[in-house]
Design a protein around this nucleic acid. Structure first.
Lengths: 137, 137
DNA sequence: TAAGTTAGTGCAACACTATTGCATAGTTTA
DNA sequence: TAAACTATGCAATAGTGTTGCACTAACTTA
């Protein structure tokens, strides 16, 4: 993804593209998987944790990334699809590989519809499958 | 649940019933919901965190409780059904109420079967639904 | 353009959760 | 009873997430 594309993307979501934000976003896109704060921190050692953290929060607030809590102990961040509004209709299964620790968005697998008992309302969901991914098998 | 029943239960799972373990187990059963380490710690102020922690780990290893990571920031523990082996067939949906923070096991809602892409294997799953429960609505 | 305002970044500190090592107390076994 | 094992309590630690504050860069407006 070119820098230009990234800037357009961020601007289209009302987030001002800064050097750090572009870098964080690019890294997320290029990795093709969900990354934790610590993962990102390692990739560019010079950048402050809090800066990355705040960039991610900003992204999250503006539906640029969504969070995945895959049970690994740290929350991970993954880029949303273009038309994602992070509501219940955009939710998909995430796969956590217990060998390599990689978390992958299974965008092709939407979260199945569940009929909750009377009285429960439903505004978000996380569906994490743990197992072994093809590259670790 | 009587003390006697608790002891039998723990013994049947090859866990020696001690005062602390009985207490932790009883609290989990009586609460009827999933509790975090901190929740339990508050309920009996005199008991060490690490003791509760280790009791829970022991329970988990012996399929007496299962863990739920409901995204609240702390892992919660809930008692398993009698016949639970904590494998994929015993998994059920958990409901996390974003108002009261309570996590409830929806044992009546098994985790739906998902057809993963070629090459992925699957040995555990977490399906958390966030919303508002009847008592908070 | 200069001055003022706002937004982003880096640094340091902190809270909280989970976890472990070690010493002691309590229980079981030979 | 002595030895061996298990559970508990205490203290310390690592990791994650988060915030306050100061500084700087960027933007606005007279």
């Amino acid at each position: 993804m070119t820098n230009n594309e990234i800037e357009k993307k961020l601007e289209s979501k009302n987030v001002k593209p800064t050097a750090m934000r572009n870098l964080v976003y690019k890294t997320l896109v290029d990795s093709g998987k969900a990354l934790s704060l610590a993962d990102l921190e390692q990739q560019f050692e010079k950048v402050e944790r809090s800066t990355i953290f705040r960039a991610l929060k900003t992204f999250e607030d503006n539906f640029i990334v969504h969070t995945v809590d895959d049970g690994s102990g740290s929350v991970k961040y993954a880029v949303c699809d273009d038309d994602c509004t992070c509501n219940i209709h955009d939710l998909h299964v995430h796969f956590y590989c217990t060998r390599c620790g990689r978390t992958r968005c299974m965008k092709e697998l939407p979260i199945p519809n569940i009929k909750l008992p009377e009285g429960y309302t439903y505004d978000n969901a996380q569906f994490i499958i743990n197992g072994v991914c093809p590259r670790c098998d």
